Computed example of a mutant assay.
Amino acid sequence: MEFNSSQFLFSGRWDHASSYSRTSAPGAMVQFNAVASSLDLELEGHARWRLDQDGKQLAIFVTDRKTVKNVKVAGDGKSHLYRLIKISESNPGGVILHTIATDKKGKLMAAPKFANRRIEFIGDSFTVGYGCEGHVADQEDHVFETTNTSKSYAFLLADGFKADFQINAFSGRGLVRNYDNIVPEWKIPRLYKYTAPGFAPEDVSKTSDESSLLWNFDSFHPQVVVMFIGINDFQGNPPYGDKDEFKKAYREMIKDLRLKHPGVKFLLVSTKVWPNDDLTPTVKSIYETEIADGNKDLEFLEVRTTNEGLHGHPTERSQVDLANTIRPIVGRLGKWMSR
C-alpha cells in the first residue's frame, strides 16, 4: 500500500513531505486504524520505537538505516487503533517515516480524529524521560537503551487526559546556559523555533532555506503549556546561568507564547538542583512578578523527584509520581476532567 499521510494522526512536531514525514521530537507519535495481520513500518534513522495496539504495548524495536520492520498484530479481521511512538531522543539527528502498510489482505481505515484537548510540554531531560529505565549506579553510556519518553510524566499526562500533545524537550539544554556550556549556540529558545532541529545544519542561519525549517505555530494551539526548564542553567560545572538573564528570557518566552496561543494557560514547574538550589527561587520569582503584573493565566509548582535513574535522573516510578502530582493542576488549568 502507498503511504497516505491523511490516513494518520500525528502528534508532536513533524515535517511532512510528499513521500515521507520526519521528526526529531521525543515522544513523537503516529496513530492509525487498521485491519491487519501484520504491519510493515518503513523507517530510517537511529531510534527506539514502541508500537501499541488499542493502547497496549505490542513491541519495542530499534531502527537505524532505512529498513522495513514487520510486526505481527491482531489478525482477527477487526479494526484496531495502532500508535507508533518514538521513545528515544534525537539530539542531534532525527528519523524519517517512509511508509506504513498492512499485509495484502489488510487495509488502513479512516484516520483517528483530533482530540479537543491540547497540551504542550517544554523541558529538558526530565521531560524527555532520559534514563528512566536505568539506574544511577550504572556509569556506562546506556542513555539510548534506558531513555523511554512513553514513560515520562509528559507522555503519561497527555495519555491520561487523552489529549493531543507536543513534547518539545532537549536533554542538557537550558534557557540561557546549557549543561556544562555544551553547544552554547543551541539553547532551548533557538531549538524551539524549528520543526525538527535535529535535522538542521550546524548553523541554520547561514542557509538560504531557513524559513522552510521553522515550525508553523498556527498548526497547533495548546490550551495548557507545562514549562519545566532551567535545570541545566543552574547545574553541572560553573559558571551557572545569570539569574536576571534567565528571568528575562523566561518571561519573554511566556509573552511570546501568549501571543502565539491566545487564552493559553501555563504551569511553571521547578525542582531542587545542585549545588546551589537556584532554580526554584528564580522560577517562583518569575511567577510572583507575573501575578503582580496582573496575569492570572499561570500557576507555579515545585516538585520533588527520586533521581535514582541513569545519571541521577527520575526513575519510571518517579515519572509516574510526577505525572500524578502535576495532573490536578493541569486539569484545573485546562478545565478538563481527570480522564
Rank of each mutant, 00 (worst) to 15 (best):
E2M: 08
S6E: 14
S6F: 11
F10N: 10
F10L: 11
S11W: 06
D15I: 02
D15P: 07
A17N: 06
S19P: 03
Y20D: 00
G27C: 00
A28K: 02
M29H: 04
F32Y: 09
V35L: 06
L41T: 04
L41I: 09
E44A: 12
Q53L: 10
D54P: 02
L58H: 10
K69S: 10
D76A: 00
L81A: 15
R83N: 06
L84I: 06
G93M: 05
G93I: 00
I96N: 02
A101I: 05
T102G: 08
A111H: 06
F114C: 05
E120C: 02
Y130S: 07
C132W: 02
E133M: 14
G134V: 00
D138Q: 13
Q139Y: 05
S152L: 04
A154M: 01
F155V: 01
K162A: 10
N168I: 02
A169Y: 03
D180F: 11
N181Q: 05
E185D: 15
I188D: 05
R190K: 12
T195W: 04
T195I: 07
A196H: 12
P197T: 05
S205Y: 11
S219K: 11
H221I: 08
M227R: 10
Y240H: 13
Y240L: 06
G241N: 08
F246I: 02
I254V: 14
L267F: 09
T271M: 11
K272H: 09
K272L: 03
P275Q: 05
D277S: 09
T280G: 05
T280H: 09
P281D: 07
T282V: 06
S285G: 14
F300W: 11
E302L: 13
L310S: 02
H313Y: 05
E316K: 14
E316D: 04
R317C: 08
R332N: 15
